[in-house]
Nucleic acid binder design. Structure first.
Lengths: 163, 163
DNA sequence: GTCAGTGCAAACTTTTTGCAACTAC
DNA sequence: GTAGTTGCAAAAAGTTTGCACTGAC
């Protein structure tokens, strides 16, 4: 628990084990994708990943990217984020602490919540017969900007009616 | 807090207020969609909604469904669920208690977690300057079925190598 | 050498957009 | 009457699939 099991080397080993355990082949594409994914801090899309690999002069097809990210999610090395409507976002797992996000229902802005208490609270839940890889809390609502924009709009509407 | 603010009548009123506050029109389509959405227990897709309205002999176009569900999310009357890869799932908000889901990384099966302690823990978080509409906790991992399937596969691979 | 994995393009699904017709205000 | 809304169809965006070629075992 004390040592970091999420270094590039450690994750490569874990992926290697996962592939072996499932009778899957160890291709250079798979490890290149893993490396690229773990170089990215924060979330990324399939397209981001392809761009980054392109910059490294490493070409991978879209199908391989979809295939490999799926494996990495199954190997508990990537989080598959659901927030955006259209595109799927991924994120490396750098520790086993729960992640929390605040998402505005209107502008869809996503903010990372840094609360030790919240993390501890979420972490206290241990289901039986379910191997937890990670926990994500999404707090939805209206952000200050959108809140004030809505109030402003409301005022304008009221004023125009009283003209 | 004690009275239920999520009855069909109450949500219709809240939607009415939201529309008025934003200078949007009160169309029969919008209220029909809200009513249908609140008739559904559990999650649903845009297509589900269209089917249900069709059964009620109420025709709405796909664009209207997308438009209206977006408004309902902004009005804090619907949750936009992110779990499935392809299709977006929605769910009515029936209370302000946090919801928790357990999701298998492999088979993508979704289970509702019913834990009072967990709910209380999540609920204890109150961000400043952010109007919380609801909180959702996703616990990712491997479900018992997939866990045992993986072990079985691993055994087979080991055996075939020792042949 | 064999078969899983990759790349490419085509297919498919879901969501968005443009524009004419409609209707809430 | 006017402008916001709807419906339809077409387009766009994201993801999946089929098949020939390649390379890990």
């Amino acid at each position: 628990m004390s040592e970091n099991v999420y270094t590039q080397e450690a994750v490569a080993n874990r992926f290697r084990d996962f592939l072996a355990a499932n009778g899957l082949r160890q291709t250079k594409e798979r490890f290149a994708i893993l490396r690229a994914a773990y170089d990215i801090e924060g979330t990324f899309t399939i397209e981001d990943l392809q761009q980054i690999l392109l910059l490294q002069r490493f070409h991978v097809s879209t199908s391989t990217l979809y295939n490999t990210t799926l494996l990495l999610v199954q190997a508990n090395l990537l989080i598959r984020h659901p927030f955006s409507s259209s595109t799927t976002h991924f994120e490396r797992i750098t520790d086993n602490k729960p992640k929390s996000y605040q998402i505005c229902n209107i502008c869809h802005r996503i903010t990372h919540i840094k609360s030790k208490d919240l993390a501890a609270a979420v972490d206290s839940y241990h289901p039986r017969r379910f191997g937890v890889s990670h926990r994500i809390l999404y707090v939805y609502g209206t952000c200050p900007k959108c809140e004030s924009a809505m109030r402003k709009k409301l005022k304008q509407i009221k004023n125009s009616k009283h003209q």
